[in-house]
Design a protein around this nucleic acid. Structure first.
Lengths: 197, 197
DNA sequence: GTTAGCATGTAAGGAGTTACATGATTTT
DNA sequence: AAAATCATGTAACTCCTTACATGCTAAC
């Protein structure tokens, strides 16, 4: 339960939905997508792909077609079972959905989820962050010790960052609600490109 | 080389510097200190403490003294070797010092480092983040694909977060420089407590 | 021609989590 | 008396990274 390994699988399933891809490209896209910090290694990606093959979530097909003269690369694509698994994972609500990494990857694929789910995940995430803030605030009060200047600055910056993310989530939630009410006052994330909703 | 395991050790050494502590309390302080996300488990802390004992970095002493009627807890304190190791780790400059977790813990103990080191670590961290930004920017240009609305919003928020952290670092660097020039215009992190520089 | 980047993998090992196991002390 | 929280540990397991191994293709 709550295995973190699902994160990569979900990301792979989501990316392959855009079309067949080979491992090397998958890795680059993945790193661009959740690359704030972590960089996925081959030693992690390829075994995962093998595992997903065994699980029948994806299938491989050496790109034999006369594209160019390139070395035949192993191209992966989602199966029906894979699509179903993607939908199952994306409709999960609960702790697994709003932990740091899990949340990011789910958010990235929100375009393929119901608004109901989106709202629940966004709210769950916000509650989780708010709890963290409250806990830290509470524990800081209990600590009578006057903290070191740099340690305090780190705390302050951390709190500010989380507060900022809470505001971000609140804006997104309001935007989603605005859409549901039929009056998209603040065009949610971005107003330039209209999604396929 | 670049073993991440040093992070906990460094944190333990740094915290014990404030005075003897037992495992349970150490864990709480640790979680408060770098608790933005990760929560350290006992299964991780206690073996580390044992390892540090074996390495002679810390020593234990059952708190036999008549404090209260409490169960005798195992209280750890740093040895001379531990203090030296702390200083060695804190004066490291290089990738190991400015990776996410490593940076945070080092920053928290900046009060016990030379300004020269502080500046180098802050600048190293800033460069690292700037590189990330540049890389993402570059890769986004190469991607001709128009990205999904939510994926784009995630990117935007990520970039903004990192840019914000770069500004934070710049302010800190300027503050440190201001101190060195003898004119602490913007009293760096906090003006209340003066460190023992 | 040789370097840099594309492309795919495997083996070993590290770091840390989960779950289990145990028991004392404090609060309700 | 029960529940919460303090307190210390161990064993198994998972996930991931590092380092190694291999070879193609494009650019300089």
């Amino acid at each position: 339960m709550s295995r973190r390994g699902e994160t990569i699988e979900l990301a792979v399933l989501g990316l392959l939905h855009e079309g067949p891809m080979h491992g090397y490209e998958l890795r680059k896209r993945l790193n661009l997508m959740l690359g704030w910090g972590r960089v996925l290694s081959y030693g992690s990606l390829y075994p995962t792909l093998k595992k997903m093959l065994r699980g029948n979530l994806i299938e491989e097909s050496t790109s034999s077609t006369v594209t160019t003269s390139r070395r035949p690369r192993i191209v992966y694509q989602v199966t029906d079972a894979g699509t179903r698994e993607f939908e199952r994972l994306m409709s999960e609500v609960g702790p697994a959905a709003w932990e740091d990494d899990n949340f990011d990857i789910r958010f990235a694929f929100f375009g393929r989820t119901d608004m109901e789910i989106r709202l629940r995940v966004l709210e769950g995430r916000r509650i989780r962050l708010q709890e963290r803030l409250d806990r830290v605030q509470r524990e800081l009060q209990m600590t009578e010790k006057e903290v070191d200047r740099y340690a305090a600055e780190l705390q302050r910056h951390g709190v500010e960052s989380v507060e900022r993310e809470v505001r971000w989530l609140s804006d997104l939630i309001n935007a989603e609600r605005g859409l549901s009410a039929g009056q998209p006052m603040v065009p949610p994330p971005d107003s330039s490109t209209a999604p396929q909703t």
